[in-house]
Design a protein around this nucleic acid. Structure first.
Lengths: 338, 338
DNA sequence: AAAAACAGCGGCAACGTTATCGGTAAATCA
DNA sequence: TGATTTACCGATAACGTTGCCGCTGTTTTT
């Protein structure tokens, strides 16, 4: 029962002019008298004219659709990034198409294959934990589709990227624990192989080095990003011969998991053991003791990524840019020491 | 420098057959020999053929795009619903276009106006708190675009809707507090005027009535959905001449806000005061004491909403359906009494 | 053995735009 | 005054599909 909208030809017929003129009038005033332009616009409103995006896309070879490939959307960071992306896209007349990989490289590959079907004008990507070398994204770029990475980048691919300052954030977080009197600081890291896992790890290591603190391999644990992973990691840390007295976690979710595990073990976080996270998820101020963390500018990252992508689309030329946004240490209870 | 994909005609030329045959072979085996079909498929793979969605949409009068209008995506419930929607849409070859209203009726109206431009095949909607009578959505339906409401519906609009069982969930939550020994139960409600605010309020009232408990008007507070609102509501409740001894909150975020406020007041939740929420946000098991709540099937709601919408799109005429999904009481510490 | 049915394929016209090229009248120039 | 530019508009061909009609041979029916 779908009614059909009025087309450009209907307007032309009603006005007894060529539909080519209507097409021009509807876009720019180029080559049309102001008078007839008014007529067309009025008639268009009267007939409730809606441009057909398929026809437009077919004729112009574009879709006004942007793809967003990311592991998931059910956490604070990603959903906030998307909100930022969405704001910019919406204001520029672009649509967003989500591709949720569930943090699986396999699903990511499948989606990239299918995603080419959707004739996208550009792509915003946060790769999955176990992502490969990013050859799929390189292929997209080779086909002329601009790609911008955010948060988690495929390093081999030479294109624009927007990330938080992982190294300095991690450095600052670790140093904060040192300054509060902690000496045996462990690191619950992300999955090995991910660029920002390495960056945050390096920040952690360099902070320890600066303050002449021991760097034990058994105090560094790699695993996934979930709360459950954080719990398990903490339990494993507490099995070490030499127990740490503080934990810097790669993100807040893992930090929260660790805190819950320590609570079960009867360890008093914020007194005998310090914990610092990364993200500033709202849960950080809800959990007790509240969680000290590095705040990430998630919304900004989304906005800037999208702006960058739109620039790439506009100018055909590509000159890859790297944007690094600073984080901010938010001190709460979990890093106290009494 | 966007490279062009191989088209159906390229395949036809390479194989010396008509492009109409290629088109048929690529879809159904209808009217094509299995042999030639194999040939076409092989050549398509060889040439890395990608169907052009714009051309397809133009010929078929559809866009394979679905719109999702909702207040926001940065919370557990909405992001999970979207994940459910996304799964169904993706598997059926549909794209999702997000319209984030920031829970503002004004922005909602603006977006609906623009959204008509995007030639959508259907619409999934969760109205904003202060939404109007939904005439904008009625207009879409009149134009032949199927609309399905989820969670928050515009009651005046006669179309399919998918919601959780607000009434029974609220009833069960309230009764649980009663059964645990609480007698002076307050309700922190949502914004007045919203259908599910009323449904949950009624469940609360009926549970009190069933157990012959007092129903005080000053124990019912309407306000927004945020954690900050919950905090303020709890503070206001504690200013009452006759203080309640328990709170049933319209959602977990408000319940969390209330718990944090009570903690500051020195009130012991789960001992002298009971709190029950609604949603089963992950934060419910992180906060201390952990929060008793009614679990909502958010992912299911998303999936079913999208399936329903796709049905509406397939069959041109479809009778509006109302799907009500049951919640489940999750008992934790916040509703204990010692 | 003629008639009817069918399987397999090609031709062509949509679908609603944009883009390119002309063409005509008016305006400007020489 | 004639030539040339300018402003405006029309005709037509894309864009890459799908859908309808019709044309062959071959198979089945009667």
């Amino acid at each position: 029962m779908r009614k059909h909208y009025a087309t450009i030809k209907d307007i032309a017929n009603a006005l007894n002019i060529s539909f080519a003129t209507v097409s021009r009038a509807l876009r720019d005033a180029y080559d049309v008298k102001a008078e007839t332009r008014e007529l067309v616009l009025a008639k268009a409103a009267e007939l409730n004219y809606r441009p057909n995006v398929n026809a437009k896309g077919l004729a112009q070879h574009r879709s006004y659709n942007l793809g967003v490939v990311l592991p998931g959307i059910t956490n604070y960071y990603f959903s906030t990034v998307i909100t930022g992306i969405q704001e910019v896209a919406y204001n520029s007349g672009y649509n967003l198409i989500l591709y949720v990989t569930n943090d699986s490289a396999e699903r990511e590959r499948d989606m990239i294959r299918n995603l080419a079907l959707s004739s996208l004008d550009g792509l915003l990507v946060c790769v999955s934990s176990d992502s490969d070398d990013g050859s799929g994204f390189q292929a997209m770029i080779d086909e002329g589709i601009p790609v911008v990475f955010f948060d988690r980048v495929a390093e081999q691919v030479n294109t624009s990227r927007v990330v938080q300052d992982d190294y300095n954030g991690a450095f600052e977080a670790t140093e904060h624990l040192v300054q509060n009197g902690y000496r045996k600081i462990a690191h619950i890291a992300g999955p090995e192989g991910l660029a920002f896992t390495r960056a945050r790890l390096k920040g952690y290591k360099d902070a320890l080095k600066k303050h002449g603190l021991p760097l034990k391999q058994e105090w560094i644990i790699y695993s996934g990003f979930s709360q459950a992973h954080g719990e398990q990691d903490a339990l494993n840390l507490w099995k070490c011969r030499s127990r740490p007295d503080a934990i810097f976690a790669v993100n807040d979710r893992k930090a929260v998991g660790a805190m819950l595990a320590l609570k079960k073990l009867g360890v008093e976080v914020g007194k005998t053991v310090g914990v610092v996270g990364f993200t500033n998820d709202p849960v950080a101020s809800i959990i007790s003791p509240s969680l000290t963390t590095i705040a990430e500018p998630a919304f900004e990252i989304g906005k800037i990524s999208c702006q960058l992508l739109l620039n790439h689309i506009k100018k055909k030329r590509f000159d890859p840019k790297e944007v690094v946004l600073p984080g901010k240490l938010i001190v709460r209870e979990s890093s106290l020491k009494v």
